[in-house]
Design a protein around this nucleic acid. Structure first.
Lengths: 104, 104
DNA sequence: ACAGTATATGCCCGATACGGCATATGCGCA
DNA sequence: TGCGCATATGCCGTATCGGGCATATACTGT
């Protein structure tokens, strides 16, 4: 199925370059990645603005420093949107603010 | 993970300097549920507006009719925000439209 | 009432995100 | 330079999620 193909492409170090739609990699995935990146940036911004460490934020969100670090570096898909949202919310964000972060 | 959270927080002493408490935790959980519900409603609205069946949408999003049904009924656990977003995006939404759905 | 379709629910099992932990790497400061 | 703190990365056992499938319930038109 599609997911397996995508994983293989990524695992093979597929270079994104310019056009990514030619091998079944639709822009849905690209949009999801963009959303992840937006949330990641928002997490880091909010945390820094509050003057907190990743460890402190982790405790607030009932997760670990390692996962907060991965959430802020949306590089790998080792972190779900659920966790990113939970971290953001525990940093004082609400639905409207998350919406703004997404639109930005 | 609701109860587990509370237990962990009880075990670990709460760090001063943050305005977090159990009430805040519940708030983040409630906010997450609200987000799920918003996305679920948006999925159903978009699908209906496009005159599509769950099975058709499922094929677009490379998932199954059962998952789409669960995504539209956010009441039940078992569907992630990631999947909800993927379905929404494959229904033609983009980050801005998802943001509006969240704020609403 | 019936058939056909659409939606909802449940189970199995492989995939994966999670927490926990250890361990790097980075970064500032005495 | 070395120490301490913050951040990043890796592995492991486990919980959860997703696809496949079957099936139940609801809806619609005939």
């Amino acid at each position: 199925m599609d997911n397996a193909k995508k994983r293989k492409l990524e695992a093979a170090g597929w270079k994104v370059g310019t056009a990514q739609n030619f091998l079944g990699m639709d822009d849905t995935e690209a949009a999801l990645v963009a959303i992840r990146v937006s949330l990641a940036a928002s997490i880091r911004a909010r945390r820094k603005a509050a003057g907190l460490t990743q460890a402190e934020v982790a405790k607030m969100a009932s997760t670990t420093q390692a996962r907060v670090a991965k959430a802020e570096n949306a590089s790998q898909q080792g972190v779900s949107l659920d966790l990113a949202m939970r971290v953001l919310l525990s940093l004082g964000a609400n639905a409207e603010k998350i919406a703004k972060a997404l639109a930005a």
